[in-house]
Design a protein around this nucleic acid. Structure first.
Lengths: 199, 199
DNA sequence: TCCAATTTGTAATGTTCGCTACAAATGTGG
DNA sequence: CCACATTTGTAGCGAACATTACAAATTGGA
């Protein structure tokens, strides 16, 4: 059984470049021409490997999640709920201003609103943001069960609040806010967490 | 001197419709065909009145600012810095989930990232978000001078924090968060404000 | 009543969009 | 070395995009 001509590009490397283009220009602002140029391949290769522009986005989102998985695990592994919040907020401030990446968060920059007919792009991004929020919520439920958080604590509300912080920081970063500014927001956001968790 | 054929549409009414389209689909997701259909005019009328798609966006942004001016004035007129924050946060929670408008905030949904060549759309939106932040900053500087905020308070940091809250709520609203959820975020955000302003 | 000025509707402009046919190239298995 | 399977590069597809030419329509002023 013949195997065929081997692929001449590294799919993960190409996805990194595609991710960066979507991150910087959003789904609709990223053109196939720009994507193929950044990925170092041409259109037929892109479509053979990823099916469509939307398929490429989903693959890039998967890769994004994968790259952030270690960070999220580090956050969730924190010994206390407070430390979870602290790691998330300050880690996010640093990640969203990492000069190695476009500013902000792909799940926000990628596209909050899209053209008629592309509704599932914003909803896909929203769904992935919700996944992160859910991880935090479960972590806080556990903290509550463990007595780390008081019985009056609201895991859903805390998780949603932190979700709003990371999204808000993403918007600030997109506007050019620097690391110091985002850390300052994180510092203030921690105060709310402390009040709400009875610290 | 001849005056010419009178315009057959109401420019403000048309701008309201354009604003809604930009709000719901973002700058790049809004097509001229969709805009003209919503505005009830045809393309030449649009271009005669607003010059270009970008000119229409700016006009829609002006109208948006105008509509929110009364709200911002109500916020800034609050007797204390705390009340400024409270009015802003809860008012924003309600505005961004007002069923009369698309969810979220036009200054966020409009487009955080755009295609190459349209860079001034995101920067225009960022500039208008910065204007709002500046209004808050000046208000907090005044509060500090008046002794309403302690001498240790940081007006810039507080304004930026609130800016992050409204942006974050906008993202949550775009994901389908309801009014109750946003008010819960506002409640938590107030706790940070209270801690940071020594209440 | 004709002229000047402006808007309106139709129809089209050139460009760019996402996507794909097709043939040449490159590999594996027999 | 041959047959097959897959990828690559070129070139182009139809559709949609923002924008505009142009002529008919509508007004006020001379």
């Amino acid at each position: 059984m013949a195997i065929g001509r081997p692929r001449a590009f590294d799919a993960d490397k190409a996805l990194d470049e595609a991710m960066e283009v979507f991150w910087r220009h959003g789904y609709e602002g990223a053109t196939i021409a720009e994507l193929t140029a950044a990925m170092g391949i041409n259109a037929p290769s892109l479509y053979a490997a990823f099916g469509s522009k939307e398929g490429l986005l989903k693959a890039a989102l998967d890769r994004y999640s994968g790259k952030r998985a270690a960070f999220m695990q580090h956050v969730l592994d924190a010994p206390t709920a407070r430390e979870v919040a602290r790691r998330l907020l300050f880690g996010t401030a640093d990640l969203q201003t990492d000069p190695a990446n476009p500013p902000g968060c792909l799940l926000v920059q990628g596209g909050l609103a899209c053209a008629t007919g592309h509704e599932n792009v914003p909803s896909e991004l929203a769904s992935r943001r919700a996944d992160n929020e859910e991880l935090l919520r479960e972590r806080f439920k556990k903290a509550k069960a463990d007595g780390d958080l008081p019985a009056t604590a609201d895991p859903t509300g805390l998780a949603r609040y932190l979700s709003a912080q990371t999204a808000g920081m993403g918007v600030l970063a997109a506007s050019g806010a620097d690391r110091r500014a985002l850390r300052q927001v994180a510092t203030l956001a921690m105060k709310a967490f402390d009040s709400a968790s009875g610290a």
